[in-house]
């Protein structure tokens, strides 16, 4: 469906325009010592990687959060037991989770074309990224919500809470630190997926590492991309842990 294409492409163009503007400013002020050619490869690649991670995380959390809540609430001993529905949903999620991302990329090529209007590139890859990430997120959210003390949920029940009130006012706020930690872990997993974008001619740091390192033997770019990826993972993990601790009132 060709008409879908601008919906996917336009936000990316806007983001990358702004990103390159910031890059130009930073290069003139601070990073002038870096060789211009390398800078012009790595800076946009970092932008593409960030765009892929952030958008995938956002959308897969919108879907995965809802599914994670459903998985917990409809369990046999949940607050709204629906065992058959729970079993079917669990099976679908497990099925999607068990397909390795590279295989998913290939098998979803036609569907990706249908949904985004193009088959390959940094933007169309968002679709398989989301398909791969949301079941993972659903399981992460499920795990966090299951950590909530059953006694507290019981107390909320005894106070006459509706199912919705228990989810919204008890389960999610009580699980907040764990949810934040889970989001950081999900993000690093998604970051791992994005590095496979080069398979479908996508961009990002992973793709540049493959193109320059594997194909052209330009090791400087490859190592730079690798180091940037490692630093990115570190930043996400440290920020996630700090944010989680800040929101955890069980720590004195």
């Amino acid at each position: 469906m060709k008409w879908m294409w601008p919906i996917w492409q336009d936000p990316f163009n806007v983001f990358m325009g702004a990103w390159k503007g910031i890059g130009g400013f930073l290069y003139s002020q601070i990073f002038g010592f870096i060789n211009a050619k390398s800078w012009n490869i790595l800076w946009p690649a970092l932008g593409e990687t960030l765009y892929m991670i952030l958008l995938t995380t956002l959308i897969s959390y919108l879907i995965g959060m809802a599914l994670g809540v459903l998985l917990v609430v409809t369990r046999r001993n949940g607050i709204r037991p629906l065992p058959t529905f729970n079993a079917i949903l669990g099976a679908i999620i497990n099925f999607l989770r068990s397909i390795p991302f590279v295989i998913l990329l290939a098998t979803l090529l036609d569907t990706t074309f249908c949904i985004t209007g193009k088959m390959t590139g940094t933007v169309p890859i968002l679709f398989p990224l989301i398909i791969s990430a949301f079941p993972y997120v659903a399981r992460m959210v499920e795990g966090s919500l299951l950590e909530v003390d059953g006694g507290v949920i019981e107390a909320a029940k005894a106070m006459g809470s509706t199912t919705w009130q228990i989810i919204w006012k008890v389960m999610l706020p009580e699980a907040k630190p764990s949810l934040i930690n889970g989001a950081a872990i999900s993000m690093t997993t998604i970051l791992g997926y994005t590095t496979m974008a080069s398979v479908v001619s996508g961009g990002g740091l992973g793709a540049q590492g493959v193109i320059y390192g594997l194909n052209q033997r330009k090791y400087d770019i490859m190592y730079a991309a690798a180091i940037m990826l490692v630093v990115l993972v570190q930043i996400i993990t440290v920020l996630g842990t700090a944010l989680s601790r800040k929101h955890d009132h069980r720590i004195r």
Binding site: G151, A158, G160, S161
Partner: peptide, 20 residues
Amino acid sequence: MAARRKMSMIFQQFNLLMQK
């Protein structure tokens, strides 16, 4: 739900919302 609001309960393990 209305009946439960007229009949409160306290527990051995208190069951307070720890994040509030």
